[in-house]
Computed example of a mutant assay.
Amino acid sequence: MVDTAAAALLGAAGLHAGFQLTVTTLVYPALARVDGSRWPEAHDRHSRAITPVVGVVYLLLLATGAWALATLPLTAWLVTAVAGAGIALATTAFVAAPLHGRLGRVGPDPSLMRRLLVADRVRCTGALVCLAGAALVCLRP
């Protein structure tokens, strides 16, 4: 039987990975194609729409990760799941969010957009690592 905390972590990791894959494959490429004249409106609309979703997803990921760490045995798979989530969250806080702030002020600067797309791929990798670790926590108690 799978522990409830492990199942919750897997659910949050799956939600996070699905969200992040959508952002990486659809949302950011579309945002990167917006030309300068439409940039302020498009970027502002993107920021307003995605911020609450990011908040909910990350809050669930943090809560279930903390629950799993507090109640499950500390295995390599649990550490992998939490590390993947940590990479995604830290990249958002320390790279992607500041880049979005700068892009909002200066417009679609190509070098800033390239850095944002790289940061986003790092977040996506972290989300997938988290999902794999969480799945293995459930499969290998």
Rank of each mutant, 00 (worst) to 15 (best):
V2H: 09
A5P: 09
A6H: 01
L9P: 02
L10W: 00
A13R: 03
A13Y: 01
G14M: 10
A17T: 03
G18V: 05
G18C: 12
L21Y: 01
T22V: 12
V23M: 13
V23D: 01
V23R: 08
T25K: 12
L26V: 12
V27T: 15
Y28E: 08
Y28C: 01
A32H: 12
A32L: 09
V34N: 12
V34H: 13
D35M: 11
S37T: 15
R38D: 15
R38A: 14
A42F: 14
A42Q: 10
D44V: 14
H46V: 07
H46N: 04
H46C: 05
A49M: 12
T51A: 15
V53S: 05
V53R: 05
V53P: 02
G55F: 15
V56Q: 09
V57A: 10
L59T: 14
L59W: 12
L60W: 00
L61T: 10
L62P: 00
T64G: 07
G65S: 12
G65E: 11
G65V: 04
A66E: 07
A66T: 14
W67M: 06
W67Q: 02
A70W: 04
P73K: 02
P73E: 10
T75Y: 08
L78S: 13
V79C: 06
T80F: 08
A81H: 05
A81N: 06
A81L: 01
A81Q: 04
V82G: 09
V82Y: 02
A83Q: 03
G84D: 07
A85N: 07
A88K: 05
L89R: 02
A90M: 10
T91L: 07
A93E: 14
F94S: 07
F94C: 12
A97E: 02
H100P: 07
R102F: 06
L103H: 05
L103M: 09
R105M: 14
D109C: 01
D109A: 13
R114G: 11
R115V: 04
L117S: 15
V118D: 11
V118F: 07
D120P: 03
V122D: 09
V122K: 02
T125N: 07
G126I: 13
G126L: 03
A127N: 03
A132I: 15
A132G: 08
G133M: 03
A134W: 01
A135V: 13
V137F: 05
L139N: 04
L139G: 13
P141C: 09
